[in-house]
Each structure stands twice: as structure tokens, then as C-alpha cells.
């Protein structure tokens, strides 16, 4: 089975700061990590490979430093990795991102299953997986929490829905996005780390993908970020001091003043 896993490098913090002057993310001093949901996607890919044979290819669109994350993916069980990197890809929204990824899948040729995370912790849209399925015109299942079995070109999975689980089947090739309930990602292995140090990670540019530059990066984006801002603080919270009893008294007093109690 040919499995492709889509990985995005994200800032390793949920405490995202925005530079007020440039309206961009402050990335200095923040270590980049693999998007946490993508670690589950990778682990599931590796487990399916161990179960059914085949290989796992990790793929990411991002700046050159995303190569480091792809090496970690190899040390955690991916067989190969490809980085999609080009100045032309910069500023991509989900549409341009998914288009670029889809072109990479076409260049890769044969694949049976593409696994994505349910969403990222920075962009947070959860759109790339489903959009990718549209570009490639293949079936798609979101929020997969368990792969029950793959039989020939039929895959049966359990997916999380609001009030429980659904068992769904789809034909392959297809795409799934996974939730964190699906597995516990393994740590790197020593052999994997040795392999990852030596691995060649090809970098595919816009030219390599043969894409229309108008469809990738900022120019291929259907959305524009007009402004990024923190919600303005209208009221400052107040911390009550003292032992629990006096805090409760003070709180009641305030509520009475505000005519809530």
C-alpha cells in the first residue's frame, strides 16, 4: 500500500503573538514542531504499513526549515519525505495549499491512501484535507478514530461524530483526516534516526510541480488576510485577594453592587 501523510510545521506554542507593526506572527524564539494532529496521521500511516505492507511518504509544503520536521518523520517510521518549497508558495491560503499538495500527489503518481490531521493548531481551519480530496476527485472521510480494516480497495473506518461514532466505508484511493483518539504516536527509533540523518529529502518547487503560478501561494489564494488583531480588552478582570471566605464575601458584595445578586 502506498500511503502519503501530509505534515505541517507549526509554532510549538498556543501562545501565538502578533507583531503589531507588521501584522505577522512573531516566530522568533519559538521552536517549530510537527502539527500535533499530523503526528497521529503519521503514526497511523506507519501502523497501516506495518499491518498491510507498503510504504509511507511524508509530504509538507513549507519553508526550507520544514525539512527538520520531515527528518523527524523519517525517524518515526516514514520511508521517504518530500518538501514542497518555493517562494511562490508563500502566503497560501487553504485553497492554494490544497492545490499545491494535490499537484504533488499527481507528481508522486500511485497512492492508495492520503492521511491528514483533522486540523492545524495555527491555521486551524481543517479545510486542507477535504479540499485536497476535491482537487484529486477521490472519496474523503473526516475525523477518523479507528481504521477497522482495509480489504483490497475497500477501507472501513470508525469516525467521530458529535454524539458518538459512525462506521463508514470508502473505496481507495481516498483521503482521511484523523483525530487524536486514533493512536498514541511512537517516539523516534534509533534506526530511524540513523536513516533520517542520511536521507535525501527532495525539494519540489513550483517548476517541478509544473503548476500555474497564479494558482499557488498568495496569488492563488481566494482569501486575503486584511488584518490580524487581538480582540481589544474592554474590561480588565479583577483578582480577589485574601482567604476563600473573604474572597466569597467580596465577590458577593460586587455582585450585589452590579445588581446581579
Amino acid at each position: 500500500m502506498n500511503i502519503v501523510v501530509c505534515l505541517k510545521q507549526v509554532p510549538g506554542t498556543t501562545d501565538v503573538r502578533i507583531d503589531p507593526e507588521t501584522n505577522t506572527l512573531r516566530r522568533q524564539g519559538i521552536k517549530n514542531i510537527i502539527n500535533p494532529f499530523d503526528a497521529y496521521a503519521l503514526e497511523e500511516g506507519v501502523r497501516l504499513k506495518e499491518r498491510y505492507g507498503g510504504k509511507v511518504t511524508a509530504i509538507s509544503m513549507g519553508p526550507p526549515q520544514a525539512e527538520e520536521m520531515l527528518r523527524e518523520a523519517i525517524s518515526c517510521g516514514a520511508d521517504e519525505a518530500i518538501l514542497l518549497s518555493d517562494a511562490a508558495f508563500a502566503g497560501a491560503d487553504t485553497l492554494a495549499t490544497s492545490y499545491t499538495l494535490s499537484q504533488a500527489m499527481r507528481k508522486l503518481g500511485e497512492y492508495d491512501l492520503v492521511i491528514c490531521g483533522r486540523q492545524t493548531i495555527d491555521g486551524d481551519t481543517g479545510q486542507v484535507g477535504p479540499e485536497l480530496a476535491e482537487w484529486l476527485d477521490v472519496p474523503f472521510i473526516a475525523y477518523v478514530s479507528k481504521v477497522e480494516e482495509i480489504n483490497g480497495d475497500l477501507m472501513r473506518v470508525e469516525r467521530m461524530v458529535e454524539d458518538g461514532h459512525e462506521i463508514v466505508e470508502m473505496s481507495l484511493p481516498g483521503i482521511i483526516t484523523v483525530v487524536k483518539e486514533i493512536n498514541v504516536p511512537r517516539l523516534p527509533s534509533l534506526r530511524g534516526m540513523a536513516r533520517s540523518r542520511k536521507a535525501e529529502i527532495p525539494v519540489w518547487t513550483a517548476g517541478d510541480l509544473g503548476v500555474d503560478e497564479g494558482m499557488v501561494g498568495l496569488s492563488g489564494s481566494a482569501t486575503t488576510v486584511v488584518r490580524i488583531f487581538f480582540p481589544e480588552r474592554i474590561h480588565d478582570g479583577e483578582m480577589l485577594e485574601g482567604d476563600p471566605e473573604s474572597q466569597v464575601d467580596a465577590l458577593l458584595e460586587k455582585l450585589r453592587e452590579a445588581r446581579i445578586a
Partner: peptide
């Protein structure tokens, strides 16, 4: 299992027998 996944049991086995 975690130790096995990370190849820790391979450390004390020679390379000819799948060790490190």
C-alpha cells in the same frame, strides 16, 4: 513496547542479528 519501537532492545544485540 515503546522501548522496542525505539530500538532500545537492539542496542545489546550484534548487527548480524538485527541489532545495533
Amino acid at each position: 513496547k515503546d522501548l522496542a519501537d525505539s530500538d532500545m532492545f537492539r542496542i545489546f544485540i550484534p548487527e548480524e542479528y538485527d541489532g545495533l
